[in-house]
């Protein structure tokens, strides 16, 4: 056998010439088309909302005018007054707020911790466990609805906040999201903290948590929105009017003999309001969260 005089590891790395993606110098026509499509899409998305808002300020007569009025000639707050006076709307809103807030807070705490464990810690069965978590993501809610209801009913949790909140905590999407987010953080950061004397929990609390704040906000907003607009489970679990959430409550407005479109619209407008506010205030984080890769350096 000849003596080794060439060493693969000492050879310079193969020339990596990455073709720089040619910047599309498209004609302005291309841009116009893009913006045109976006404007149309935005219009289509906005029209129903605008019509609902418009309807909520109309009286019963102008409701059915043809052609419909976009801006009511005689705007009225009667629908809102009626809604608040005749229905436990405030209670429904409180229920929604309690449920959505509780689920959001608990999920942000649990999911970030579980995400950290899956992303950075090593323990036996980690991959298998994560696979199980992912598998639960693939089971449609409709498939678990009835067994879940039976469990909750047997625990005597129907018409309670616990019954509304607990099942929502088990959703795996947040764990998955947090894991992906935390995985982008360089491992050397934890190692540095480990050498600096941090325990595993201190690493999570003092190093990881402050760095994933944008991700926590995204998860929080998503969870809050999902819970705020959740309909099927609150419908199944709540039979007493005072335990309705907004979605169920607003829907119950039309299940009488007639549909009062004005009051229904007022309910819809009021239930949209908190979501719009949440989104407006946290938009900064929301956008930051979607470019989370920039965290690294």
């Amino acid at each position: 056998m000849a003596i080794e005089t060439e060493f693969a590891e000492l050879r310079p790395p193969a020339d990596i010439t990455r073709a720089t993606a040619a910047r599309r110098k498209g004609p302005s026509l291309y841009l116009i088309a893009i913006y045109g499509i976006l404007v149309i899409a935005a219009f289509i998305a906005l029209v129903p909302f605008l019509y609902v808002i418009s309807t909520s300020f109309k009286d019963t007569i102008s409701l059915f005018q043809y052609p419909p009025e976009w801006i009511p000639s005689e705007p009225t707050l009667d629908n809102f007054r009626g809604l608040l006076a005749d229905y436990p709307f405030v209670r429904w809103m409180l229920n929604s707020f309690v449920v959505a807030s509780a689920v959001t807070i608990v999920k942000v705490v649990i999911d970030s911790m579980a995400g950290y464990a899956f992303a950075k810690m090593t323990f036996p069965g980690k991959d298998a466990l994560f696979l199980v978590v992912l598998m639960t993501l693939m089971v449609p809610f409709a498939a678990t609805l009835i067994p879940l209801f039976i469990i909750v009913r047997d625990l005597n949790l129907t018409n309670t906040y616990a019954g509304l909140i607990l099942p929502a905590l088990a959703s795996p999407i947040g764990i998955f999201m947090m894991r992906q987010f935390i995985e982008t953080l360089p491992t050397d950061l934890e190692n540095a903290a480990r050498l600096d004397g941090c325990s595993e929990f201190q690493i999570f609390r003092r190093v990881i948590l402050p760095l994933i704040r944008p991700g926590l906000v995204v998860l929080g907003v998503f969870t809050f929105m999902t819970q705020w607009t959740s309909y099927l489970w609150p419908l199944v679990i709540g039979t007493k009017t005072e335990m309705f959430t907004l979605t169920v409550g607003v829907q119950s407005l039309r299940s009488l003999f007639t549909v009062n479109w004005g009051i229904l619209s007022a309910g819809a407008v009021l239930s949209m309001l908190p979501l719009v506010l949440v989104f407006l205030f946290l938009q900064r984080y929301f956008i930051a969260g979607s470019i989370a890769g920039a965290l690294k350096e």
Binding site: P186, D188, L189, L211
Partner: peptide, 28 residues
């Protein structure tokens, strides 16, 4: 690691991005 009386400097420095220079140095 913390009980070995060793300190390490990492290739990518591994500074805590959310802390000031003072807090980074003071952290250990």
């Amino acid at each position: 690691p913390a009980d070995r009386n060793v300190a390490m400097v990492f290739q990518n420095y591994a500074l805590y991005p959310h802390m000031t220079v003072f807090d980074n140095i003071a952290f250990p």
